[in-house]
Simulated scan of single mutants.
Amino acid sequence: MTIHAYQEIYLSNAQAALRDAIDYAVNICNIPGEDFIKLFVVSSVSKRIENGEPAYLAGKSGIEIVNQVLEETMGRTGMTEAVARYERSCEYWIGWAVAYYQWYSGRRFREIFQAISFEDFQKMYYTLHEADISKFTDIADARVREYFSETNLKRIRMLGSCTQAELAKRSGVGLRSIQMYEQRNKNINKASAETLYRLSKVLGCTMEDLIEK
């Protein structure tokens, strides 16, 4: 059973907000897509959408999202007045599709855009924008899973330059268990909450970051 990022009742609102945001940032504010995505994924906005906060899933327009992202990351905002757009741009589709995949997979936006660049999404648009969303989801999921072939535990541990032995000593989780989790011989998704808490505390991440999607 797939555990989605938040309740499905908010999905269409989240898709509308993100499609409008990316379209507005690129085509009205003239911010290159890759640049806006870099700002978006480090902002609190992306995390609040990921966490399913209703105020952001259903209460923010695309323009408001862009303005908050720019204010948080660059100390400025975009245009203050809404500009009517009737064209369904490539960027419009990217925001709509990515919002769906984030909800579907429960992955973080930074992981999605790390595995699939904005340019890659632009290329996908030409063959997938008229297809059923499930086709895009399957392709995106395969790309993300291929990119993150290592377990989340190993990837996060190595990013922090922490050895397995150090992690075992500092967390109190057995070295053999850590090795088996990283080799996928033991399912970390079935680990106790205490084990996940101890590992995440040492690694400086959330317990959810260690779960395999």
Rank of each mutant, 00 (worst) to 15 (best):
A140P: 05
T127N: 08
T163W: 00
V144D: 02
E130W: 09
D132C: 00
I139W: 06
L128P: 00
L153W: 07
D141K: 01
M158K: 09
I139H: 07
D138C: 11
F136V: 06
E166F: 09
R145V: 14
Y147D: 14
Y125F: 01
N152E: 12
R143S: 08
A165M: 09
M158A: 07
T127Y: 12
R145I: 15
I133T: 01
S134Q: 12
T127A: 11
A131I: 02
T151F: 08
S149A: 10
S134P: 04
A140K: 06
I156T: 01
E130M: 12
S134C: 12
E150Q: 13
I133R: 03
H129K: 06
Q164N: 02
R143T: 01
V144Q: 08
Y147M: 05
Q164F: 00
H129Q: 01
Y126K: 15
R145M: 05
R157S: 04
F148L: 00
E150M: 09
A131H: 06
S149N: 08
A131F: 04
R143L: 12
M158Y: 01
S161E: 01
V144S: 01
E130Q: 10
S149R: 08
R157Y: 02
L159E: 13
I139T: 11
Q164A: 06
S161W: 10
I139F: 10
N152A: 14
T163N: 00
R145C: 14
Y147E: 08
K135E: 11
T151P: 05
L128C: 00
L159C: 11
A131N: 11
E146Y: 13
I139G: 11
Y147L: 07
K154W: 04
L159N: 13
E150R: 08
Y147N: 05
T151I: 02
Y126S: 13
F148I: 02
S134R: 12
E130D: 14
F136I: 02
A142R: 14
R155D: 02
D138T: 12
L128Y: 09
T127F: 07
A140S: 14
Y125E: 15
S161N: 14
S134W: 06
Y125M: 10
R145K: 10
M158I: 10
Q164L: 02
A142G: 12
